[in-house]
Every structure is written in C-alpha cells, then in structure tokens.
C-alpha cells in the first residue's frame, strides 16, 4: 500500500485514474480504516486530500453553501449559517458515530461509502444537494441522489472523487428534518431513517416537499409519492397518515441482524411523519 498526499486535485485525479489496483481516499477515514482493519479492503493506494485548498472550508454560494469534502461533522455543526439554513442535513451528519467520529467523519465520505443506512445522505437527498466531482476528465456536478448505486457502490467513475457538496438556497418558510431509529440512543446504525424538506405558504399549506428514506432499500431513496401526499395540505392527520403510508409502501428492505422487513417498513412511515412535523415547525407552519 502507498500513502500519497498530492499537491493538486488534478494530480489526485491522475494518480487515482492511473492506479491499476484498489484505491481509497482518506478524509475522515472512519469507514476506510475500519474496512482495512477487518480485511474487507486492502488498498494499493490511499490518497489524502484534506490539506488541499477548499477541501476543509465552508463558503457561501448563491444563497446556499459549498462545503468541502473534508469538512468534518464537528466542523459542520459549528457553522451557524449551515445549521440555520439546513438543520436537518446537519442533524443527519451529526448522528454518524460518536463525538470522536464526528471529529473526523465527513458527509462526503458517508455518501461515497455507499451504505443504504448512511445518516448524512437522506437529508442531502431531501435538500436536493449536488456534489462537485473531480476526475481524469475534469470537473462535473451531480445530484446527491444519483451517487449511490447499491450497498457499498457508487456511480463515480474510475479516478473520480467528490470535492464538495453544494446545499442550495431555500425559499422563505422552509424547513427540514432528519430522524432515524436505532436501538441505542447513540453509536448505532440506522434501522430505518427519513428526511423531509418542505416549504409552506403564508397559510401554512405545504407547497413543496421532498422525502427521502434510508436503510429501507439498497440505496437511500427519494420518495416522490410521500412528498405528493403532503403537498397541498397543512399536514393534517389525514395527510400525516397518507405520508406514513406512502413512505412505508416505498420500502424495499431486508431482514437482517439490525431489523426485520416488517419493522423497517412500519417505522420508516412513522419517522417520515415525525420528521415532516419537525420540518413543518421549522418552516413556521402549524398542523
């Protein structure tokens, strides 16, 4: 195994593109180190990028924020602007691991690790966030929702890596929230998870919404039917029930050591409903 700290993003792309063996990028390292230790992955090349310009900074852009790929959960949580604009995204990121893990873990790492239960991802998908990708052919942008390809897999090409996440501006009276279910209060992997981002009008009617679910399908997924169930409503009891039902109906989970199909399906609906109510309150609406 080689450990390399390239001087530029271009150099990194070339290194990663030309390496014939297994490659890994280390920012937080909280997944890569575990996989290396367990023998799941034996990389031939590990590339450390976090010293490169911009990778550890959060900058305002077009009313939103661009967040460098090596920004840790702890750093993100200390940024008042991001916390105020996208509290649901931040709470998702901050649920990853412990305080110690927060000191290193990044939301890009969480995304690129490809876990269906990734806590950072539903919030990003609900926020319609995009990522900027560097690769051997230069830079491109891509919606977060299109990155996961299946458990442990992404749509990133050979030599490609994410350099930043862009969280967009949002209209007035908008709010988001993320909830997951775990048996313990902390130090756990989501058994089911839901993120909701919504906007209400002056009367409190939901005018736009995005609902994303985690840990209930091979990838984190956007559920338009669940969003449709609350758009045009004030999130009254009937809309809440419809949301929960639509979320549960979209689930395609597995039975495993962490939860059953039946449990995940039911709880995903409960969490979608509860997250929507928190998002609504943050948007200033009332049900």
């Amino acid at each position: 195994m080689r450990f390399v700290r390239p001087e530029t993003l271009e150099e990194a792309a070339t290194l990663l593109g030309q390496e014939s063996g297994v490659t890994r990028i280390i920012s937080g390292g909280t997944d890569v180190m575990v996989q290396m230790r367990s023998g799941l992955v034996a990389p031939d090349l590990v590339v450390d990028l976090k010293h490169l310009t911009g990778l550890r900074s959060i900058t305002p852009e077009a009313g939103g924020f661009r967040i460098g790929a090596a920004v840790s959960g702890a750093q993100l949580g200390e940024h008042e602007g991001v916390c105020a604009l996208w509290p649901g995204v931040v709470e998702g990121v901050q649920l990853i691991g412990s305080t110690q893990v927060q000191g290193r873990a990044t939301m890009v790492g969480n995304l690129c690790n490809g876990s269906p239960a990734a806590d950072a991802v539903p919030g990003l998908v609900a926020a319609d966030a995009t990522v900027r990708i560097m690769g051997p052919n230069g830079s491109r942008d891509c919606p977060v929702a299109e990155i996961p390809a299946g458990p442990g897999r992404t749509t990133l090409g050979k030599g490609e890596f994410v350099t930043s996440v862009f969280l967009p501006a949002r209209p007035e009276r908008s709010g988001d929230a993320y909830l997951r279910f775990t048996p313990r209060t902390e130090m756990d992997i989501a058994v089911a998870a839901a993120a909701v981002s919504l906007t209400v009008d002056a009367k409190g009617v939901v005018t736009a919404a995005r609902v994303a679910l985690g840990a209930v399908a091979p990838t984190v997924m956007l559920v338009p039917e669940a969003a449709a169930a609350i758009i045009g409503t004030t999130l009254d009891d009937a809309a809440q029930a419809a949301l929960a039902a639509a979320a549960s109906a979209a689930c395609n989970p597995i039975d495993d050591k962490r939860g059953t199909i039946e449990f995940r399906t039911r709880v995903a609906g409960v969490l979608a409903r509860r997250a929507a109510l928190i998002a609504l309150a943050r948007a200033g609406g009332q049900n």
């Binding site: 313990r184 209060t185 902390e186 130090m187 756990d188 992997i189 050591k257």
Partner: peptide
C-alpha cells in the same frame, strides 16, 4: 456469528 463487534453487539452507552 453475525455481530462480533461493539457496533452490533450493543452494550449500553452513557446516553441510554
């Protein structure tokens, strides 16, 4: 054995 680690063998943590 499917859970030979502290992640999935869940001993109580302080916040529980």
């Amino acid at each position: 054995l499917q859970n030979p680690g502290f992640l999935d063998y869940r001993i109580p943590v302080a916040s529980d």
